[in-house]
């Protein structure tokens, strides 16, 4: 019998991933033989310079993009080669997203944004889910803003709404793409602490793409990608050490 990703405690896994854009002499290799597993309750930061392939890796892991070769699992389900409709359902039900900016649907108020994944499924949150969402809204301090539109919120508040949405449906996996890229340092710390809590207390696997060593220092694990390959896979590091790690790459070029 084959080993299932969950037997290894993994909520997401990719093996021998390659991604090439274009063909012939003009072909660009974004990913070159990447294998990675993300464990339950683990907050993983993917670091790397611009153009290293870290965003492509996240997009493929989240079912937003497809690899050229290699295999991808979310939970125990292999999503490699899935059609658009099936991938859409996976994203809706199994994955949460926090992007750098433009995270919220501008026409919906805060509450509707938070429950949007449920709405897409054509259902209302049940009592347990409702209680969970209410506790998220309270702990994120969004209660007084439920009727506000995204345009009426500050950048930090918008990110908190996105986090409430990403955690609301309790997906096993949350992807965050430079979630603190547009925030001041204090708000950044709050947002990162929230993500760390989500992993530690609620057992969600969190994958954060960032090039900020301070942000990465909040993670349990730091994976460094350079030129489409994983070049380092470390545990928790200080911001200074994380910075050294990436700077070392630059020097080695």
């Amino acid at each position: 019998m084959q080993t299932k990703p969950s037997d290894l405690g993994l909520v997401a896994r990719v093996t021998d991933l390659t991604k090439t854009y274009g063909s012939g002499p003009a072909a660009v290799t974004a990913l070159d033989g990447v294998s990675l597993g993300v464990r339950r309750g683990e907050f993983t930061a993917i670091m790397g310079p611009s153009g290293s392939g870290k965003s492509t890796l996240m997009h493929i892991m989240a079912g937003l993009d497809s690899p050229t070769t290699g295999r991808v699992w979310i939970g125990d389900e292999e999503i490699t080669g899935m059609g658009d409709a099936a991938l859409t359902l996976i994203r809706r039900r199994r994955v949460g997203f926090v992007f750098q900016a433009f995270n919220l649907v501008p026409t919906l108020d805060v509450e509707a944004n938070v429950t949007f994944p449920f709405e897409l499924d054509g259902r209302r949150p049940n009592t347990t889910e409702r209680a969970w969402i209410d506790s998220l809204i309270d702990s994120l301090g969004l209660r007084p803003r439920l009727r506000h539109r995204p345009a009426e919120l500050s950048g930090g508040q918008q990110q908190r709404v996105a986090i409430a949405r990403a955690l609301g449906a309790r997906p096993a996996l949350v992807f965050a793409d430079e979630p603190t890229g547009n925030l001041d340092s204090r708000t950044s710390r709050e947002v990162l602490a929230l993500l760390a809590t989500a992993a530690a207390e609620y057992g969600q696997g969190i994958v954060m793409v960032t090039h900020d060593p301070v942000a990465a220092s909040h993670a349990d694990r730091i994976v460094v990608v350079n030129d489409g390959r994983i070049v380092a896979d470390e545990g928790r590091l200080t911001a200074a050490a994380a910075s050294e790690l990436v700077l070392g790459l630059e020097a080695a070029r």
């Binding site: 859409t88 359902l89 994203r91 992007f99 433009f102």
Partner: peptide, 16 residues
């Protein structure tokens, strides 16, 4: 375009 990209990422199907 961007708004549609977001809602598609969040799980709005092509039909929707």
């Amino acid at each position: 375009t961007r708004e549609f990209g977001l809602v598609r990422a969040l799980g709005l199907s092509r039909g929707q």
